[in-house]
Design a protein around this nucleic acid. Structure first.
Length: 297
DNA sequence: ATGACTTCAGATTGAAGA
Protein backbone atom coordinates (compact mmCIF):
# COMPACT_ATOMS: atom_id res chain seq x y z
CA UNK A 1 0.00 0.00 0.00
CA UNK A 2 1.06 3.47 -0.72
CA UNK A 3 0.95 6.25 1.78
CA UNK A 4 -2.27 6.67 3.68
CA UNK A 5 -3.66 10.16 4.22
CA UNK A 6 -5.74 10.55 7.38
CA UNK A 7 -7.79 13.68 8.03
CA UNK A 8 -10.08 15.00 10.74
CA UNK A 9 -12.56 17.85 10.34
CA UNK A 10 -15.26 19.33 12.51
CA UNK A 11 -17.59 20.41 9.71
CA UNK A 12 -20.17 22.21 11.90
CA UNK A 13 -23.23 20.75 10.12
CA UNK A 14 -22.56 18.44 7.23
CA UNK A 15 -25.77 19.67 5.61
CA UNK A 16 -24.33 23.19 5.44
CA UNK A 17 -20.94 21.87 4.31
CA UNK A 18 -21.74 19.50 1.44
CA UNK A 19 -20.72 22.12 -1.13
CA UNK A 20 -17.30 22.36 0.51
CA UNK A 21 -16.78 18.81 1.69
CA UNK A 22 -17.05 17.12 -1.70
CA UNK A 23 -14.60 19.42 -3.54
CA UNK A 24 -12.27 19.17 -0.55
CA UNK A 25 -12.30 15.37 -0.78
CA UNK A 26 -11.49 15.64 -4.48
CA UNK A 27 -8.63 18.07 -3.89
CA UNK A 28 -7.00 16.55 -0.82
CA UNK A 29 -7.90 12.96 -1.56
CA UNK A 30 -7.71 11.68 2.01
CA UNK A 31 -7.98 7.91 2.51
CA UNK A 32 -9.49 8.09 5.98
CA UNK A 33 -11.64 11.03 7.13
CA UNK A 34 -12.90 11.58 10.66
CA UNK A 35 -15.83 13.99 10.73
CA UNK A 36 -17.46 15.70 13.70
CA UNK A 37 -20.54 17.83 14.33
CA UNK A 38 -22.56 16.28 11.52
CA UNK A 39 -25.78 17.57 13.14
CA UNK A 40 -27.85 15.10 11.13
CA UNK A 41 -29.25 11.61 11.56
CA UNK A 42 -27.72 8.60 9.83
CA UNK A 43 -30.61 8.66 7.37
CA UNK A 44 -30.12 12.28 6.38
CA UNK A 45 -26.35 11.76 6.11
CA UNK A 46 -26.96 8.92 3.68
CA UNK A 47 -29.38 11.01 1.63
CA UNK A 48 -26.92 13.91 1.47
CA UNK A 49 -23.71 12.03 0.77
CA UNK A 50 -24.24 8.30 0.34
CA UNK A 51 -24.00 8.19 -3.44
CA UNK A 52 -21.32 10.88 -3.65
CA UNK A 53 -19.06 9.07 -1.19
CA UNK A 54 -19.57 5.68 -2.80
CA UNK A 55 -18.66 7.18 -6.17
CA UNK A 56 -15.37 8.30 -4.63
CA UNK A 57 -14.67 4.86 -3.20
CA UNK A 58 -15.46 5.60 0.43
CA UNK A 59 -17.20 3.37 2.90
CA UNK A 60 -18.79 5.28 5.77
CA UNK A 61 -19.35 4.53 9.45
CA UNK A 62 -21.90 7.12 10.54
CA UNK A 63 -23.04 7.72 14.12
CA UNK A 64 -25.45 10.56 13.55
CA UNK A 65 -27.77 12.58 15.74
CA UNK A 66 -30.37 15.18 14.90
CA UNK A 67 -29.63 18.79 15.83
CA UNK A 68 -26.31 18.36 17.67
CA UNK A 69 -23.23 16.15 17.66
CA UNK A 70 -22.85 13.34 15.13
CA UNK A 71 -19.54 11.76 14.05
CA UNK A 72 -18.37 9.61 11.16
CA UNK A 73 -15.40 7.84 9.63
CA UNK A 74 -14.98 7.65 5.86
CA UNK A 75 -12.45 5.16 4.54
CA UNK A 76 -11.22 3.68 1.32
CA UNK A 77 -8.63 1.45 3.02
CA UNK A 78 -11.14 -0.76 4.83
CA UNK A 79 -13.71 -0.10 7.53
CA UNK A 80 -14.09 -2.98 9.98
CA UNK A 81 -15.35 -3.62 13.49
CA UNK A 82 -17.34 -0.39 13.71
CA UNK A 83 -18.34 0.66 17.22
CA UNK A 84 -20.71 3.56 17.90
CA UNK A 85 -20.27 5.49 21.14
CA UNK A 86 -18.05 4.64 24.11
CA UNK A 87 -18.34 1.43 26.09
CA UNK A 88 -19.38 2.45 29.62
CA UNK A 89 -19.32 6.08 28.51
CA UNK A 90 -21.30 8.76 30.35
CA UNK A 91 -24.39 10.51 28.99
CA UNK A 92 -26.04 13.87 29.49
CA UNK A 93 -28.23 12.21 30.58
CA UNK A 94 -28.26 9.79 27.64
CA UNK A 95 -25.21 8.94 25.53
CA UNK A 96 -24.72 11.42 22.72
CA UNK A 97 -23.27 10.68 19.27
CA UNK A 98 -19.72 11.82 20.02
CA UNK A 99 -17.55 8.82 19.15
CA UNK A 100 -17.27 6.20 16.45
CA UNK A 101 -14.42 3.77 15.93
CA UNK A 102 -13.38 1.49 13.09
CA UNK A 103 -10.31 -0.39 11.92
CA UNK A 104 -8.98 1.16 8.71
CA UNK A 105 -5.90 -0.26 6.99
CA UNK A 106 -4.79 -2.02 10.15
CA UNK A 107 -5.17 1.01 12.44
CA UNK A 108 -7.90 1.43 15.05
CA UNK A 109 -9.31 4.88 14.28
CA UNK A 110 -11.49 6.88 16.67
CA UNK A 111 -13.41 9.94 15.47
CA UNK A 112 -14.33 11.95 18.55
CA UNK A 113 -16.24 15.09 19.45
CA UNK A 114 -15.41 15.75 23.09
CA UNK A 115 -18.08 17.60 25.10
CA UNK A 116 -17.54 21.35 25.30
CA UNK A 117 -17.70 21.71 29.08
CA UNK A 118 -19.33 25.13 28.93
CA UNK A 119 -18.39 26.49 32.39
CA UNK A 120 -15.61 25.31 34.67
CA UNK A 121 -16.94 23.06 37.46
CA UNK A 122 -20.41 22.86 35.86
CA UNK A 123 -22.22 19.59 35.25
CA UNK A 124 -21.14 19.88 31.63
CA UNK A 125 -17.52 20.23 32.68
CA UNK A 126 -17.68 17.14 34.89
CA UNK A 127 -19.36 15.31 32.03
CA UNK A 128 -16.49 16.32 29.74
CA UNK A 129 -13.89 14.93 32.13
CA UNK A 130 -15.83 11.69 32.67
CA UNK A 131 -16.25 11.31 28.92
CA UNK A 132 -12.50 11.70 28.35
CA UNK A 133 -11.79 9.07 31.00
CA UNK A 134 -14.17 6.64 29.28
CA UNK A 135 -12.44 7.30 25.95
CA UNK A 136 -9.06 6.73 27.55
CA UNK A 137 -10.24 3.37 28.87
CA UNK A 138 -11.54 2.33 25.45
CA UNK A 139 -8.20 3.21 23.84
CA UNK A 140 -6.28 1.44 26.60
CA UNK A 141 -8.29 -1.73 26.02
CA UNK A 142 -7.85 -1.58 22.26
CA UNK A 143 -5.11 -2.50 19.77
CA UNK A 144 -1.61 -1.05 19.77
CA UNK A 145 -1.95 0.68 16.41
CA UNK A 146 -4.42 3.43 17.19
CA UNK A 147 -5.34 6.99 16.25
CA UNK A 148 -7.65 9.31 18.14
CA UNK A 149 -8.75 12.07 15.77
CA UNK A 150 -11.16 14.87 16.36
CA UNK A 151 -12.31 17.94 18.20
CA UNK A 152 -11.07 17.45 21.76
CA UNK A 153 -12.22 20.88 22.94
CA UNK A 154 -8.97 21.27 24.87
CA UNK A 155 -5.96 23.39 23.95
CA UNK A 156 -3.06 21.18 25.05
CA UNK A 157 -0.79 24.09 26.04
CA UNK A 158 -0.86 27.86 26.33
CA UNK A 159 0.86 28.03 22.94
CA UNK A 160 -2.29 26.50 21.48
CA UNK A 161 -4.45 29.56 22.13
CA UNK A 162 -4.02 33.04 20.64
CA UNK A 163 -3.81 34.75 24.03
CA UNK A 164 -3.67 32.70 27.22
CA UNK A 165 -4.90 35.62 29.27
CA UNK A 166 -8.15 35.65 27.33
CA UNK A 167 -8.98 32.16 28.58
CA UNK A 168 -8.32 32.50 32.29
CA UNK A 169 -11.14 30.91 34.23
CA UNK A 170 -12.61 29.36 31.11
CA UNK A 171 -12.84 25.81 29.85
CA UNK A 172 -10.47 24.31 27.24
CA UNK A 173 -7.30 25.35 29.10
CA UNK A 174 -7.76 24.16 32.69
CA UNK A 175 -5.46 21.78 34.53
CA UNK A 176 -7.95 18.91 34.82
CA UNK A 177 -8.74 19.07 31.09
CA UNK A 178 -5.06 19.05 30.16
CA UNK A 179 -4.46 16.21 32.62
CA UNK A 180 -7.23 14.25 30.89
CA UNK A 181 -5.32 14.73 27.63
CA UNK A 182 -2.05 13.73 29.31
CA UNK A 183 -3.66 10.40 30.16
CA UNK A 184 -3.55 9.57 26.45
CA UNK A 185 0.14 10.44 26.27
CA UNK A 186 0.67 8.14 29.26
CA UNK A 187 -0.68 5.37 27.06
CA UNK A 188 2.04 6.14 24.53
CA UNK A 189 0.01 8.35 22.17
CA UNK A 190 1.72 11.26 20.43
CA UNK A 191 0.35 14.64 19.30
CA UNK A 192 1.38 14.22 15.68
CA UNK A 193 1.04 17.83 14.53
CA UNK A 194 2.81 19.31 17.55
CA UNK A 195 5.58 16.73 17.29
CA UNK A 196 6.24 17.84 13.73
CA UNK A 197 5.92 21.57 14.40
CA UNK A 198 7.17 22.02 17.99
CA UNK A 199 7.22 25.81 18.09
CA UNK A 200 4.91 26.80 15.25
CA UNK A 201 1.81 28.95 15.81
CA UNK A 202 -0.89 26.47 14.79
CA UNK A 203 -4.62 26.80 15.22
CA UNK A 204 -7.51 24.65 13.99
CA UNK A 205 -10.48 26.69 15.21
CA UNK A 206 -11.32 30.35 14.84
CA UNK A 207 -14.52 31.91 16.15
CA UNK A 208 -16.81 33.13 13.38
CA UNK A 209 -17.15 36.48 15.14
CA UNK A 210 -14.94 39.56 15.06
CA UNK A 211 -12.90 38.44 12.02
CA UNK A 212 -10.94 36.07 14.23
CA UNK A 213 -9.71 33.98 11.31
CA UNK A 214 -8.50 36.95 9.32
CA UNK A 215 -6.60 38.10 12.43
CA UNK A 216 -5.38 34.53 13.10
CA UNK A 217 -6.78 34.55 16.64
CA UNK A 218 -7.65 30.92 17.14
CA UNK A 219 -7.16 27.77 19.15
CA UNK A 220 -5.61 24.37 18.42
CA UNK A 221 -8.28 22.02 19.71
CA UNK A 222 -8.55 19.51 16.85
CA UNK A 223 -5.88 16.86 17.30
CA UNK A 224 -4.50 13.73 15.74
CA UNK A 225 -3.19 11.52 18.53
CA UNK A 226 -1.40 8.35 17.44
CA UNK A 227 0.34 5.46 19.12
CA UNK A 228 4.12 5.50 18.76
CA UNK A 229 3.86 2.74 16.17
CA UNK A 230 1.63 4.90 13.96
CA UNK A 231 3.22 8.27 14.78
CA UNK A 232 6.57 6.89 13.60
CA UNK A 233 5.01 6.48 10.14
CA UNK A 234 3.93 10.14 9.89
CA UNK A 235 5.71 11.84 7.02
CA UNK A 236 3.67 15.03 7.03
CA UNK A 237 1.14 16.72 9.30
CA UNK A 238 -0.59 20.04 8.77
CA UNK A 239 -3.70 22.15 9.15
CA UNK A 240 -5.61 22.91 5.96
CA UNK A 241 -6.23 26.61 6.51
CA UNK A 242 -7.46 26.96 2.94
CA UNK A 243 -10.64 25.12 3.93
CA UNK A 244 -11.36 27.74 6.63
CA UNK A 245 -11.29 30.65 4.20
CA UNK A 246 -14.38 32.37 2.89
CA UNK A 247 -14.95 32.84 -0.80
CA UNK A 248 -13.96 36.20 -2.20
CA UNK A 249 -17.37 37.84 -2.17
CA UNK A 250 -20.95 37.36 -1.07
CA UNK A 251 -21.87 36.64 -4.66
CA UNK A 252 -19.16 34.02 -4.94
CA UNK A 253 -20.19 32.49 -1.64
CA UNK A 254 -23.87 31.74 -1.25
CA UNK A 255 -24.95 30.99 2.26
CA UNK A 256 -24.67 27.27 1.59
CA UNK A 257 -20.96 27.41 0.78
CA UNK A 258 -19.40 29.15 3.76
CA UNK A 259 -16.66 27.53 5.83
CA UNK A 260 -16.86 25.61 9.06
CA UNK A 261 -15.32 27.42 12.03
CA UNK A 262 -12.80 24.53 12.21
CA UNK A 263 -10.10 23.66 9.66
CA UNK A 264 -9.21 20.08 8.75
CA UNK A 265 -6.05 18.47 10.10
CA UNK A 266 -4.21 16.08 7.77
CA UNK A 267 -1.52 13.47 8.38
CA UNK A 268 0.29 11.39 5.77
CA UNK A 269 1.43 7.97 6.95
CA UNK A 270 4.03 5.85 5.23
CA UNK A 271 3.10 2.23 4.77
CA UNK A 272 3.51 0.01 7.81
CA UNK A 273 6.93 -1.66 8.19
CA UNK A 274 5.51 -5.15 7.63
CA UNK A 275 3.21 -4.09 4.84
CA UNK A 276 -0.22 -3.21 6.14
CA UNK A 277 -1.65 -6.38 7.59
CA UNK A 278 -1.74 -7.42 11.19
CA UNK A 279 -0.14 -6.05 14.33
CA UNK A 280 3.36 -4.70 14.25
CA UNK A 281 5.87 -5.51 16.97
CA UNK A 282 6.20 -2.22 18.83
CA UNK A 283 9.66 -0.67 18.80
CA UNK A 284 11.21 0.18 22.18
CA UNK A 285 10.04 3.78 21.88
CA UNK A 286 6.42 2.68 21.46
CA UNK A 287 5.19 0.97 24.60
CA UNK A 288 2.07 -1.10 24.22
CA UNK A 289 -0.94 1.00 25.04
CA UNK A 290 -2.70 0.79 28.32
CA UNK A 291 -0.59 -1.58 30.36
CA UNK A 292 0.66 0.84 33.01
CA UNK A 293 3.70 1.68 30.92
CA UNK A 294 5.04 5.16 31.40
CA UNK A 295 5.32 7.45 28.41
CA UNK A 296 8.91 7.81 27.18
CA UNK A 297 9.11 11.37 28.42
C1' DA B 1 -19.26 44.28 26.10
C1' DT B 2 -24.42 39.50 28.76
C1' DG B 3 -21.24 41.81 21.90
C1' DA B 4 -19.41 39.90 17.47
C1' DC B 5 -21.25 34.80 13.80
C1' DT B 6 -23.43 30.45 12.51
C1' DT B 7 -26.15 26.50 13.46
C1' DC B 8 -30.69 24.23 14.58
C1' DA B 9 -35.59 24.08 16.06
C1' DG B 10 -39.31 26.08 14.95
C1' DA B 11 -40.86 30.82 15.26
C1' DT B 12 -40.16 35.74 13.94
C1' DT B 13 -36.55 34.35 19.35
C1' DG B 14 -33.51 31.24 22.09
C1' DA B 15 -29.93 27.77 22.94
C1' DA B 16 -25.47 26.23 21.88
C1' DG B 17 -21.05 26.47 20.30
C1' DA B 18 -15.64 27.49 22.26
Amino acid sequence: MDRVRVATWNVNSVKQRVARLLPWLDERRPDVVCLQELKVTDVVFGELLGDELAARGYEAAVHGQAQWNGVAILSRVGLDDVVNGLVDGPGFPDQEARAVAATCGGVRVHSVYVPNGREVDSEHYRYKLAWLKALRDVVADGPEDVMVCGDVNIAPADADVYEPGAFEGHTHVTGPEREALAAFHALGLRDVVRDRWPTERIFTYWDYRAAMFQRDLGMRIDLVLASGSVAARAKAAWVDRQARKSAGSKAAEPKTAGPSDHAPVLVDLDEAPDGDVGPVVPPPSAPRAGKSVKAPR
